[in-house]
Every structure is written in C-alpha cells, then in structure tokens.
Design a protein around this nucleic acid. Structure first.
Lengths: 181, 181
DNA sequence: CGAGGTTTTGCACACTTGTACAATCCCCGC
DNA sequence: GCGGGGATTGTACAAGTGTGCAAAACCTCG
C-alpha cells in the first residue's frame, strides 16, 4: 500500500476517532504511519485529503446502510430497527454526520456534498417505504422517513435510555394516525 | 456592564458567528471588547466560559421556542410551521445544536447537558401534542414529535429547497396513517 | 487624600497547527 | 551498475493557541 492509500486510510481512521473538525495533519500522518510532508505532496493540503477521505467514508457508510435497509422485510418496524442497529454499530460515522451538519454554513465545500447525500438518501427511502406510490406520494413519504431517521439517530446518540425503540416508533405512528381522525 | 457580563455576551455572539468548537479565546475577548486575560480571571478557562455562555444561550433559545410553539393553535401543522420559522430565524443556534450533537462522545461535560435538554424538550412536546393522553401515550407522541422536529430542522438547514413544508409533513403523516391500515 | 482590595491588562511562555523546502531515498529502464 | 525522476521525509517557519504572571488601573472606605 503506497503512502497515498495509507493517508486515505489514516484519515478515515481519524474521522472515526477524532471527527472532522478536530483532526490535524499530524493526527492523520501518525495514524497512517507516514511522514507529515506526504500530505502536502499527495493532496496539496490537509483539508483536501480530509474531504476526499470523508466522501469515501460516507459513501461506504451510505451503501452499507442502504443494503442493510433493503435486507429487511420492508415492514416499517424492521426498517427502524435496522436504523437503530446502524447507529449502535456505526456510531462514529453518525456523529460525524451531525458534526458536518453543524458546520454547514461554515464549510461551503461540505454543504453541497451534504445536499447531494440528503437528496440521494431521500430518494432511496422513498423507494423503500413508498411502495408503489406515485411521485408526489413517494416524495412525501421519503421526506417523512428521512426526518424520522435523522431524529431517531440523534435520540440514540444522545440519550439511548430515553430514545424511542422501533416498536415505540411504530406504536407512536399509529397513535398519531388515530389522533388525526 | 462589567467585564464578566461582556465576556458572556461576547461568547454568545461567538457561538452564533463561529460556533462552539471553533471559537477561540481571542475571538471572545475581541467580541467582548475586553482583554484576553479577563477570561482567565473571571472564568478560569476559555472552556468554562464557553460552556456557561452555551447553557445560557440554549436555555434562552429553548424558552423562546417553547413559547412560540405554545402560541400556536395547537394543530400539528401550525406547530411544524413554527418550528420551520424558528430554523429560519434562529439558524445559528440550530446549527450549534447539531454541532454539539456531533461532539457528544468527545465532550463529556456537554453530553449530560444535551441529555437534560433532550428530556426536557420531549416532555414539553409531549404536553403540547399529547393532548389529554396518559403517560405512555404522551411519551410516545412526545418522542415522535421530537424526532420529527430534529429531522425537519436538519432538512431545512442543509437543503431548504427540498425540505418538507409544514403542509407536506401533515400530508405525509396522513399518508403514512393510511398505509398503516 | 491614601491605603487595601478587587479588576483589568500587556505581555510572554510553551505548545500546536499547516505548509514549504531541500535533501534523501527508491525503483525502473538502460 | 547507474542515472534519473518520482516518492518520501526531516526540518524549519510563521501564524495561532490557551494560560499564567506581574504591573497597572480602579474603586471603596477610612
């Protein structure tokens, strides 16, 4: 493995362990087992390296989450259970995601990336939970699912003891449906 | 206004303009129009000052949001419209909120604060949307509302053009309710 | 006016950060 | 074997970081 690949791998490790904003050039070089100057040679700047590693890491994360969700039986409760399991197993990347959301107005190059990821995620969720709905219905259901996904994740990140379980969430949705009549 | 109060005010301004992790001691001193050493004298360390300013700022933000939501007619659509308006008007504090969520595993002193805020917010939402529901129903509805609130906020922060409007969200909930049967 | 304390500040210290540069190393074609 | 070019690295530098300290300013009583 060349230094370039080592640096990407080290940067991904730092994204897990330290996060986006707090990882330094020396953190990455140490994690990669490579000299500090290699960053400038291969990527020009620490920021470009981190961004590239971030895109790869989040793409892998998204792909894995997508296949995990598709592997469920499609029932809403199974989907939410899979989401909660993902938050448990991939906790660092979920926190990184929110860390980026918190920098959305200060890191313009990240903003467009987040927008793209959000739209793609919504489209996938629309296909997953929308069933055979038409375009507008799928858009609404996908957006709803995405909001619930993010909200559920944040609950499990901050306060797992008080967070809604998958069963809680389906029950709550039924309750809300009953209230609507 | 003494230096101590100026520092708190300056720190709050920095929380709006720069965020939590990226504000430096010099940023605060400059914003407060006060010497750098005043921070150490009054608060011991920059971190303690920032934490104190953060707690005050978020408490005020929460109180304002609470009264705004209570001022609605209580219909779900009006509540979501008020939330979206809050994201528009108080954007910096919403982003700070997510920034903190992204640091939840790295800033222990913040973690318990977030847990407390989350539980209080859920309780308030339960009272708001739960109507006359009993304890368990209120817990479920409050948790659902909180998840939707966070998820909706993140959509409006990242991608306002694609985000669900209040009308969209109520329509989506009705759709989901219909699907559940 | 002046002593005593509290506040305030200028400054400096040690440390971290990102990046540039020259020197060195390594590998492949000849 | 050996030259040459890309890859790698040790190091240095400027800018920025938080915090401690001694001096100065200020304010309050007597």
């Amino acid at each position: 493995m060349g230094n370039r690949e080592s640096l990407i791998a080290g940067a991904k490790a730092c994204l897990h362990d330290i996060g986006y904003t707090r990882t330094t050039a020396r953190d990455i070089a140490t994690a990669a087992g490579v000299s500090l100057a290699a960053i400038g040679y291969h990527f020009g700047s620490t920021r470009e390296l981190l961004n590239q590693a971030l895109m790869e890491a989040l793409a892998e994360w998204g792909a894995e989450l997508s296949t995990t969700l598709r592997a469920t039986d499609g029932s809403t409760e199974a989907v939410w259970a899979a989401v909660i399991a993902s938050v448990r197993d991939q906790r660092p990347l979920w926190t990184t995601q929110f860390e980026l959301a918190g920098q959305v107005d200060r890191l313009p190059e990240i903003h467009e990336f987040l927008v793209a990821g959000q739209r793609q995620g919504r489209a996938e969720l629309a296909g997953l939970v929308g069933g055979g709905a038409d375009g507008e219905e799928a858009r609404l259901l996908g957006g709803l699912a995405q909001a619930l996904l993010a909200g559920l994740a944040i609950q499990w990140l901050i306060d797992p003891e008080g967070a809604l379980t998958a069963a809680d969430l389906t029950a709550a949705l039924k309750l809300a449906a009953a209230k609507a009549h």
